[in-house]
Design a protein around this nucleic acid. Structure first.
Lengths: 353, 353
DNA sequence: TAGCCTTGCTGCATCGTTCCACCAGTAAAT
DNA sequence: ATTTACTGGTGGAACGATGCAGCAAGGCTA
């Protein structure tokens, strides 16, 4: 418990604790160079490190932000967490990790606890349609950056949204398939409760319309009813069973748009389960471009999210909020995704074959 | 900054702050039932939540543990992080996330910062052979649970090690291949600097010896020199280039043991790059059993680590250390892994074919 | 009835920082 | 000569919770 305090440093340097404190955070220019040097010397001779708890108690500030993700076990979120942590670290911030498992009440409980811990900024990766439940926290002053979710009417004020343009992304993916000659295309997702899922769905139908086709011809698979558990881990399982459902009929789709890469990998597995070849008999396209997309067999065509940029932006905006809680209005940052074509998609198979 | 303090609760309940404090953590039995009821009512009427900073300042305790992993972008660590967080949450603890990227100095800097934050317990996922660099911290009282690493001579005292039995695991994997008739087997790993890699290598050679074969016949691929960057993300890339190196010669191996699943997925991709079929021309076996192992094409034969159990155990041991820093000697917990046979391994191809 | 224990509660110093108010000394302005 | 301004500091009251020492009131023993 060897805690070196500011008093010991002060005594060592022959100044008052106030001066040491000034050196540490007030204005280091507010003293003679010789004094500053003595303080500096004392600090690293004693190996002094400020006690964060005391500092926090006094100032109300704490150098920690919260990160609430559905589940860090999903490589997409793991990757995001890593980049966010990197950005935070560069400014001396730490990241407290929370897995909501997509349960709204858990999400709320986390936020309340974080608030109670003195944390004033959280990156919330919730794609729940409504953020109403966190409104009280935001009103009390919690800085919130919503990731992977675009602005909605009824959102709390002063909310920053950061997301990829899901409509564009899904459009890219779908147009790619249409261009390859596919017509019987399925859209596979869990329930469409979340915003980004709905947006991706919109991009999907848009692409049909733009090609002069009727979206009603598309096949929509979104699980059985609204009540299925749709954790992120199960995205793969979901895709797999979707593929099974879709492929055993006579009028099976020749291409499948999956809601994300994990789901797409599940779909691919399901395609193989059905004795078909991915990229030849059935084209599959994902969303996210997780590391494993390139490693899959065949490598997965997918829509890449610029995740490093997004993580950095998320932190920067959050920091701005924390430092100036009343600063600026709500805003949204929408990044443009990019289609990465690999081998899981190919020309539509000849129907006569 | 709407902070309800213990004083307001005390006034509301008509008692002293001390009594409220006693109710909260001292002995709630130390007061009349009626008093207790009044305090309780006041607390949830005002929505009081203790200020953790103040509590920490006073007691020196904080309900946060640190988690240092190579990189949470790796699904294995992401999954571990999730289970650890779950276990911690059940006891009211939060988890601070740190990605070391396998850089020793970064690891140390993190530990020092965590200590400075008042954190007294850390789960360290470092497989550096020596833990010497953290010795000063441990001596000052930092509770340390080393994960994915077995005990070494020269380890700090009071260290708890939790790991899977890597020797047994690699043995299982290798024996499985030998039994399938493979003889030209390659072992693919990054540099063998880390302990678990060495252990897995030992299990690999053991299996050869036990089968009455000469381990010298095996092919060892461990990157080029000791200085290659071996982040966890690159495990996949590593495997891929290993496969390329190994498979273009005339005397190519018929089976490959990869150091972990990410690496194995990379190897599989490399096998395909070479125009060969995984599980038929070349068998591949991994280690960890990440979610994606089952989704790969073909599904990956691998050695499963009981990760949920390990995460729970890690937290339990850490908690015990924190609560009683001088409690008990160093100990190691070695869990038994399990071979999961899938389709990436098959009989050795007929040499005449 | 004096002495002592027990129960149920309160007073208060304390943890390590911060930061506002103040102060002594010197210099420049009036 | 007095006021004003600035420089380079110091003093000390918070921040909110804790937990020891202490105290009043009642009960028990001798």
């Amino acid at each position: 418990m060897a805690g070196v305090t500011i008093y010991q440093v002060a005594r060592e340097a022959g100044v008052s604790p106030s001066t040491v404190s000034n050196f540490l955070n007030g204005r280091p220019g507010r003293m003679l160079p010789q004094t500053r040097a003595r303080v500096e010397a004392a600090i690293d001779q004693l190996g002094y490190r400020p006690n964060r708890a005391a500092r926090q108690l006094r100032t109300g500030r704490i150098q920690v932000i919260g990160l609430v993700v559905p589940s860090v076990a999903n490589p997409f979120w793991g990757n995001f967490a890593r980049y966010l942590e990197r950005a935070a670290l560069a400014d001396g911030y730490h990241v407290l990790l929370c897995n909501s498992e997509r349960e709204p009440d858990r999400e709320l409980r986390y936020l309340e606890e974080l608030w109670g811990d003195g944390i004033r900024g959280v990156v919330l990766c919730s794609s729940l349609p409504s953020l109403e439940h966190v409104l009280p926290l935001v009103e009390r002053g919690l800085g919130l950056v919503a990731f992977d979710r675009t602005a909605q009417a009824g959102d709390p004020p002063a909310l920053v949204n950061i997301s990829v343009d899901n409509v564009v992304g899904a459009h890219l993916a779908t147009a790619h398939l249409l261009q390859l000659g596919h017509r019987r295309i399925a859209f596979v997702s869990g329930s469409l409760r979340s915003i980004n899922r709905r947006e991706r769905f919109r991009g999907f139908t848009n692409a049909f319309e733009q090609a002069g086709l009727d979206p009603a011809e598309a096949i929509i698979w979104s699980g059985n009813a609204e009540d299925e558990p749709y954790g992120d881990l199960d995205a793969a399982g979901l895709g797999r069973s979707a593929a099974r459902d879709l492929l055993h009929g006579p009028d099976r789709p020749t291409a499948i748009v999956a809601i994300n890469d994990m789901c797409a990998l599940g779909v691919s597995a399901g395609v193989r389960d059905a004795g078909l070849r991915v990229g030849r008999d059935v084209s599959v396209v994902g969303f996210d471009d997780i590391v494993l997309a390139d490693l899959a067999a065949p490598p997965l065509t997918t829509v890449r999210q610029p995740i490093a940029d997004m993580a950095t932006a998320a932190f920067r905006h959050l920091l701005a909020r924390i430092e100036d809680p009343d600063g600026g209005p709500s805003q949204s940052l929408l990044l443009r995704p990019e289609l990465v074509v690999r081998a899981s998609t190919g020309p539509a198979p000849d129907p006569l074959e």
